[in-house]
Design a protein around this nucleic acid. Structure first.
Lengths: 248, 248
DNA sequence: TTTCATTTATAATCTATGTTATGTAACTAC
DNA sequence: GTAGTTACATAACATAGATTATAAATGAAA
């Protein structure tokens, strides 16, 4: 639990938003000055539930989270995985009733920011509001890309695509490099995200390993053959809408 | 082709946005005063293409549109169907490169509104901007719901769910009532939206008819057994985030 | 070090849905 | 009114991935 003047927690937010936009110093400062309350949560713990009407949103500072909805007979669909810098329930700012649940994958440190403060920020700095809007639009673009996978790609292509996506998301905020990244979700989680059974996820993982494309051990993914992976999964990063920056 | 002072074209936009929000007279007037250029398009015509960087967005005045992306070997994933009042490419206001294509299903009348005018509107009336943002968030909520269907529901449940959703969307803007609505897409389109082959879509339609749940003829859908349909498809309209209005 | 729970691995069997093929009905365009 | 085109319907066969079952690793807890 930290005080409202804790600036460090929002640097991860600035870093994330700067992967899809640019800010002036004043805008950056306004984001860093947002009030927030930090908390550490256990793995597998719900943060906001389907049906809730939250009055704050949740910034991930460390660890992983995911969004899901449960159906009858134990079926579950996972919509997204989230990492440090993400605000996975930013949509609750304008959709007052949650239509799904947000939960932790790993132990996670999260900062809660009051909706009221977010609204004041977007009113005072409409250009920051536009970036937050943009962030929710990228979120939607990722949903569309997942729809393509679940609807029209093989299990092999789907899993390879997810791995490429997660690697690039982590790399874009400095949490991965050299085609190596953390990947803490279970095979059941991967299946529920991609519309597959855990058994079939396991089969495909063996296949990916057998072909020498990846290593996946102790929650660490290494992609050995990036080009083959993006080709096999028809991966094109356009949909992530990263801000283009001069290389260097 | 109409002049910039054509107010009637924006009344369908106001009607649509009032299905998910409320406006003051001044806000309503500001929306009606947006400049636009109207055009009539043939069925199956692309409006904005994957890779384009449009400087306007497209308001549907009449007819149906849909969004899709094509993969290799003729595979196609449809992301959404759109009706009068929708701005299917509103996301292009903040995502500058299209990551999919928008096209007409039927002959359609559309109004193009310059991004610049939309930006000015959101700057002058932040509350209107919030409603437009909200509209893109509902769009994303519908993507999530489709992911559930494609990932975790049977073909039967998916198709029934789509029919319930389209009926409610049309009803909410006064384009349907009595569980009867237009449904102009082909069985191939339905398959590409729900991750099914056209053959299987046909099988399931026969089954829906055989059980007396629906009639579907000449692009008109009638849902005879609403309760059974929503039960079979696990349909819960919360995700559409309609503005609650006092019944009357 | 043993216990308990979770995750991963693997095999055998089954099924929902895909694929291919063909015919018919409904529109469109002269 | 006929030709061409598109959409719908149906059958036979094929398969990707589901289901069920079991057990081996792994890791946390005591």
């Amino acid at each position: 639990m930290t005080s409202a003047s804790d600036i460090h927690s929002k640097t991860v937010l600035v870093r994330k938003l700067e992967s899809i936009a640019t800010f002036s110093d004043e805008e950056r400062q306004a984001i860093l000055s947002l009030p927030s309350q930090t908390r550490v949560l256990k793995p597998g713990q719900d943060i906001v539930r389907d049906g809730d009407t939250p009055s704050q949103c949740c910034l991930i500072l460390d660890g992983w989270a995911y969004r899901y909805k449960v159906l009858g007979e134990g079926r579950r669909q996972i919509f997204s995985f989230h990492i440090a810098g993400d605000i996975p329930d930013l949509q609750s700012l304008h959709l007052h009733t949650m239509d799904h649940t947000l939960a932790t994958v790993t132990e996670a440190t999260v900062a809660f920011i009051p909706h009221q403060s977010m609204r004041e920020l977007t009113m005072r700095y409409p250009s920051v509001g536009a970036v937050l809007w943009r962030d929710t639009l990228v979120d939607a673009a990722i949903f569309r890309e997942w729809m393509i996978g679940i609807g029209r790609k093989s299990a092999f292509g789907r899993i390879a695509h997810l791995f490429c996506e997660m690697y690039l998301k982590l790399e874009s905020v400095g949490l991965a490099s050299d085609h190596r990244c953390p990947l803490p979700m279970t095979q059941v989680d991967i299946g529920d995200a991609l519309g597959l059974s855990n058994v079939h996820v396991n089969r495909v993982l063996q296949e990916l390993r057998g072909k020498g494309l990846i290593t996946l051990r102790s929650n660490t993914l290494v992609i050995h053959a990036w080009d083959e992976m993006i080709q096999a999964s028809e991966f094109d990063p356009t949909y992530l809408h990263f801000e283009q920056r001069a290389a260097g």
